[in-house]
Each structure stands twice: as C-alpha cells, then as structure tokens.
Design a protein around this nucleic acid. Structure first.
Lengths: 226, 226
DNA sequence: TCAATAGTGTCTGTTAGACATTATGGA
DNA sequence: TCCATAATGTCTAACAGACACTATTGA
C-alpha cells in the first residue's frame, strides 16, 4: 500500500535479461535493493511521462553495460503476485545479450535458469514467460546471430539455436534450411578447435528471399510429441 | 495531467473485441463517454487490487453481453500515444466472440477493420496489435471453432480460418491437415445451401495426437512471398 | 594410425499445393 | 439437362530426419 505521491509512475518496469552461458540459458539478477537481501530482476519505478521503451532500454544498459541485442515487451504483470516494490502493476520486458561482450554491472549476477534463487512470485512468472517468448521469437528475429561474435562456425550457430530453443537439432537439416534461407555467407577463414577438422567461419548476411507462406497449422492441444 | 487521488488504479484496461462479420473482421467500438462523441475501444479505470484478468473479462461481458470465446493480454501501451482517459498507461486485451450469438450491448457497434472511424492513436495501435496477435493465436487455440456454431460445414470452417488469417487457403490441403490433426468428427447430418451438393456437418471433437515437433524455421526478414 | 570433428550425399516419409475427377443436389 | 458446390484421388515439389560416408586436422 504505498502512497504514490512523488513524481514516479505508479507501476514498475521490470527486465528479464537472458544470455547463453556455457550451454545453458541464464538470467541476470540483481542483489535486492530492499531490506531482505534477496535477488530480484532489475526493475525501476519510471518517472512519469517516460516512454516504456526508453525506460526498458536504459534499464538494460544499466544492467549489462551495453545495448541489448534484442528486446521486446512481455506484457503487464500483476494479478496478486507479489513484487519487491509492493506496486500493483509491472510492465515486463525480455532482452537477450551476448555473454562475453559485456560483463554484468556491479551488483548483478548471471544465474542458470534451471537453478534460480528464490524470487518474488511476480518475477518468477516473468522469467517463465520470458523464456517462452524468447523461444517463439528465435525464428522470427536474428537473436541467435546477435548473441554470437561476427564470425562464427556453423556448429557454434547450431549450438546457440539449440540452447535458445531448449532442444537438439539435426545437423544436416539445420544446414540445409540455413542455406535455403540465405542467411549466412562463408568467409575464407577456418578455425581449428582442438582435435578434429577445422571449421569454416561464416558471417550473418541475410539476403531477402520470398518464402512461400505456408497454410494453416492445426497446433492445438499443445502436442509436443516427445 | 490528472492527479490520481481516488481509489481507481492509475492505468486503464482496454479491450479489442474482434468478430467475423460477413467475410471480414470487425472490431467492437463504443460511443465515446468523453466530451467529443468519438468512437473508442471499450475501456475502464479498474478499482485498485482488481486482477487484470477479472477486469478484462467483465469488460468483455459488459460489451457483448456474454463471455468471450477467447481472450488474451496484448500488453501495455503508452509511450506518448494519446488515450481518451488521459492516463499514461493502458493494458490492452484482445478477445474474439461469435457474431450471431450475442448482439453488442447498447452504445456499442461493430466496425469492419478496413473501415474504422477515427480513433485515439493508442487505440489504433491496439487494434493493429490485436489483429496480428489473433492471427498468431489462430493455430494455437481453437478460436475458429468457437466462433462457429456447434455444427458447421468444412467450407464454413475454412472460410472462418481464411477470414481470421486474412488469406486464402487451399481446400484439399486444409481438409487433409484437419483430418490429420483429428480435430473434427462428422455427424450424419447434411445441409443444402442453395445450388450444389449438400455439405456434411461436423463437430469440434479434438483427440490428442502427438505431433512430431519440427526443427527450426528461419523466418527472419518477414518474407511473406506473394 | 587413431580419434574427433566438419561437411556432404542419399534415401525415405510427410506435407502442401496444383489439378483433375467424381458425387449430388437445385434450377 | 445443366450448373454449382462438395468431396476426394493423384501427382509433384519442398523439406525434415536418418544414416552413412568423405575430409581434415591433432594426438
């Protein structure tokens, strides 16, 4: 029951920053500003008349030290689930950043999504929604490419997709689709990684292609099939 | 700049109700409560501590007179786009209802989405987002079926899908996928519609089927292809 | 030489769209 | 009878996954 009488808006903007941490997804958490030293998602009470996108963008910069590779609004969260701010409503954003590029700022820490510390209920539902949204977005936005360095091997790219999607992919199929989509071009560089045959390096260089726009998918009932 | 000192929450809940109106999508608008008699999306200032889902659900009932066939949160809208309430933030929902079932309540009217009256900028972006969201949701939720009467012909079902998706579908492919998805069962009734051969009536009776869970779709660059 | 990884060719099953054909009523 | 619509069979192209094979390095 906070009496909002200062110039801040009566809702928080919260951010779920995801990254690829050695073969698993990780979330960026902040050492709680409140009394209990619990970890929280980065959030802030925006000042009035600030745009949501501006606030979330600056929140990302303040957390990871650079602009996010991808950021999207998740939605409004409230409905009785507790939040560290005690404010009724939160607008959540989901972002992805490359892990190597910029270490987290002071007071922040990466946690694997499979092993999170206790979070406020509202924050826990945001993390779940964020992962789901990321997996939906991976095939519509070049997120995987932006999480990799400018030059990468196709195996690295595939592993990034597998990590983001949370499932294994078939090597030959992956490369065929990639070829058909005209998304990468080979460089003349190769990289030797320990034992086996060196891998060719590629760059992200999408060329517009008119996809045939398939019909309906009757994907009701959430049948995942294995 | 309204001083929010009464017991209402400092944001609005807005609703985009969509329906299938004789071969085109239509939105439900309300004669503006404000000074200018402009049309607006149905919205309200919820009282504090009300859940978002509860508010949006009741808003739908008050607009169409019955529970929505499908409803989902669209997200938070603000960012400087004007809203009839003058409130900074709005949480929008999108809903779909069958057109025949329940006429709109007094003061409401259906408008084809291709021919909308002037709307507040924030409401216009909600309508656009709602249509896009509906099209994404049509193959994950049985929206088309809930907009049809319990017994329908396959041609009616296909036309509903075409209307919701905004594109033509291939008849034989549509029926094959439908069959494969085990979503409908035939009744022993037939309906003669004017000239040609009568059509068999079907009911929505989904049977769980384990779909094979396909790989990646490189669907970047929004290539629609025709 | 062996182990390990990169990269590719072939085969098969599934599916979407094109097209044509049959079926069955009303005008 | 003719016409309009329903319903279905066949063909083809695209594509995903399985499998196996070759290529190229380090140990």
């Amino acid at each position: 029951m906070s009496t909002a009488r200062h110039a801040s808006a009566p809702f928080t903007v919260d951010l779920v920053v995801l990254t690829a941490l050695t073969s698993e997804l990780a979330v960026l958490l902040e050492k709680g500003k409140g009394n209990s030293g619990r970890w929280t998602l980065p959030w802030r009470l925006p000042v009035r008349s600030e745009s949501l996108n501006a606030v979330s963008g600056r929140l990302a910069v303040s957390a990871v030290g650079s602009k996010a590779a991808w950021i999207e609004q998740l939605g409004a969260f409230g409905d009785g689930r507790a939040h560290p701010s005690l404010v009724q409503l939160s607008v959540a954003f989901v972002a992805a950043v490359p892990h190597e590029m910029a270490g987290p700022e002071r007071g922040f820490h990466w946690f694997p999504v499979r092993d999170l510390p206790p979070l406020a209920p509202r924050h826990r539902s945001m993390v779940e929604a964020a992962i789901e949204r990321l997996r939906m977005a991976v095939d519509r936005a070049p997120i995987a490419f932006r999480l990799l360095p400018p030059r990468f091997t196709l195996t690295e790219l595939q592993q990034m997709y597998e990590l983001l999607l949370g499932k294994r992919l078939h090597k030959a199929s992956f490369r065929r689709s990639l070829q058909a989509a005209s998304l990468v071009t080979a460089t003349d560089e190769w990289r030797s990684e320990g034992r086996g045959r060196p891998a060719q390096l590629y760059t992200f260089a999408p060329k517009r292609k008119n996809r045939p726009a398939r019909g309906v998918r009757f994907d009701l009932l959430g049948g995942t099939g294995v």
